[in-house]
């Protein structure tokens, strides 16, 4: 599983490095603009948030590109040339966006860390915004895997699995909506924890669901 994941990341390293490079470039330009406008510009936490956001989003957006290539090039066929269980294949598919999220977290944390060292202020609000948007994109990627595997299950005549997948998808969306609404209504110190919890719960549910659906595939040709 780790070998499959490593090869896939190695294959996409230029996308990844390009994406991060672009994000660093944009973050630099944002810094210059904010520096130029000085005190008349937006508050400092906005600048920090925007920089962190770009670095968090870059690997996750590259993740969509990687997943598209992997499906287009029918990677499972190649990976199955080696001894690999369906669960390991599934694990590699689910772990890929999680690893990219991790890279995004590290990149964003670095920029926010440097920022707080320079300014001597810890922008907690910016960290919450960056984490929330990153979590949202990760959750969407994992939900995409659930949808993909539900469609595959339907095509493979695994109707119970397909119904369970789509049912889980709907429940996850409702749950996310409920927790997001609760976070918005709560106002105050509970808002961000509720919003993060919504992302986390749905991401975990989607990851486990995608893993279960993929592991029970009966056709690895597409």
């Amino acid at each position: 599983m780790w070998r499959a994941l490593r090869i896939e990341l190695s294959y996409s390293r230029w996308w990844l490095l390009g994406g991060l490079g672009l994000a660093v470039g944009v973050a630099g330009i944002v810094s210059l603009i904010f520096f130029a406008v000085g005190a008349q510009g937006p508050p400092h936490h906005a600048a920090a948030g925007i920089r962190g956001m770009f670095l968090m989003m870059a690997p996750l957006i590259v993740g969509f590109v990687i997943l598209t290539y992997r499906n287009e090039e029918r990677r499972a066929r190649l990976l199955m040339a080696g001894p690999i269980t369906p669960r390991q294949l599934a694990g590699a598919a689910v772990l890929l966006p999680i690893v990219l999220f991790g890279i995004g977290v590290v990149a964003a944390a670095l920029t926010l860390g440097v920022d707080s060292l320079v300014t001597g202020r810890l922008e907690v609000e910016s960290m919450h915004i960056v984490g929330y948007v990153g979590g949202l994109i990760l959750m969407m990627q994992l939900m995409g895997l659930v949808a993909q595997e539900s469609i595959a299950a339907h095509r493979q005549q695994r109707l119970r699995a397909a119904v369970t997948g789509w049912g889980g998808f709907v429940v996850a969306v409702l749950l996310l909506a409920a927790l997001t609404a609760a976070g918005a209504v709560a106002q105050g110190p509970m808002t961000w924890p509720m919003l993060h919890l919504g992302n986390l719960v749905v991401a975990v549910l989607a990851g486990v669901g995608a893993l279960a659906l993929y592991s029970h595939r009966t056709d690895f040709t597409s």
């Binding site: 294959y11 029918r74 066929r77 190649l78 080696g82 001894p83 369906p86 040709t221």
Partner: peptide
């Protein structure tokens, strides 16, 4: 597919092979 002994014995050429294009 998960068994090393099985994979050692079999070579497969399909219509598509999943190569990194």
């Amino acid at each position: 597919p998960a068994r090393t002994e099985y994979r050692r014995e079999v070579g497969y050429v399909g219509e598509e092979s999943g190569f990194f294009l």
